[in-house]
């Protein structure tokens, strides 16, 4: 058995890379996969707080790379999940503390013991991005349906191809179906038309995402959340299952759905 190493990146900051990494980690672990998430955003670590594991950090990625601890010592186990671990980024160092070849060595060391290694990339196209994709087998590009985010996604997709890590797959995050319906937001088809890459997931804008990160409980743990379902679907696609995309513009049943539909019509 050997893990698939997946890097989650975007170019632009704030589109949801860290949230995506945390939720895919949780969703894959729920499918009984052995998962380790690595935060490569050295100096600006955040995956720890989004996963709710910030109080348990002793060692970090840079300690491992510099040989100050063993790999296992830096791996924080998420006790809520069967097999989910986090390797946090160092907070007081910078990107130059790690090189792309360090990352290749690290991911190779993790491969035999896991099903998935998820790497949370920093924003940008510099050293941190190079570190993040160095060991990757597959790259997921997260974007939002807005001009600046799609433009940066296009740039990143080109760089991923140039590094022979392509073709990347797309996660379209923060979709607002009501805005798409009235022509004020790029639709999934519009974004795919412009970027010309494969789609692996659509995640709706959902308040439960913020509530989840407030609490340190990724929304994929919430059975009732629509965004949580979207992440669980991406996780299943990553395991090779053919899962249809949720049509968020479809009228939703139930009491709240009916109310939402009344407002949508207006």
């Amino acid at each position: 058995m050997s893990a698939t190493v997946i890097t989650i990146t975007s170019g632009k900051g704030g589109v949801g890379k860290t949230t995506t990494t945390a939720n895919l980690g949780v969703a894959l672990a729920q499918l009984n996969k052995r998962v380790v998430c690595i935060d490569v955003d050295i100096g600006l670590r955040n995956l720890d707080v989004v996963m709710g594991l910030e109080n348990r950090i002793v060692y970090d990625l840079v300690h491992v790379i510099e040989g100050q601890c063993r790999l296992r010592q830096a791996m924080i186990k998420d006790k809520r999940m069967p097999e989910l671990y986090l390797i946090p980024a160092a907070q007081t160092r910078d990107k130059s503390a790690v090189s792309p070849s360090d990352m290749v060595r690290l991911t190779d060391e993790l491969r035999p013991d896991f099903d998935f290694v998820l790497i949370d990339s920093p924003a940008g196209i510099e050293r941190g991005f190079r570190n993040a994709i160095a060991g990757a087998d597959k790259v997921l590009v997260v974007t939002n349906p807005e001009v600046s985010a799609v433009r940066d996604a296009d740039r990143i997709i080109g760089l991923v191809e140039a590094e022979r890590k392509g073709p990347a797959q797309l996660i379209l995050n923060r979709m607002r179906p009501a805005m798409v319906d009235r022509g004020d937001m790029l639709s999934t088809d519009d974004v795919l038309d412009v970027l010309a890459i494969d789609l692996i997931g659509i995640v709706p804008e959902d308040e439960s995402i913020l509530v989840g990160s407030n609490r340190g409980n990724p929304v994929a743990m919430d059975e009732k959340s629509l965004a949580g379902q979207a992440y669980r679907n991406i996780a299943m696609r990553l395991t090779g299952k053919d899962i249809p995309f949720i049509d968020f513009s479809k009228p939703r049943n139930g009491f709240l759905g009916k109310i939402a539909n009344i407002f949508k019509r207006g």
Binding site: E146, V147, V150, G183, V194
Partner: peptide, 19 residues
């Protein structure tokens, strides 16, 4: 034109020049 039509048109032009 809806605002997303304008967004898409602007994106297409900017991406061609970026690439």
């Amino acid at each position: 034109a809806t605002s997303k039509d304008i967004a898409k048109e602007r994106l297409k032009v900017v991406l061609i020049h970026d690439r």
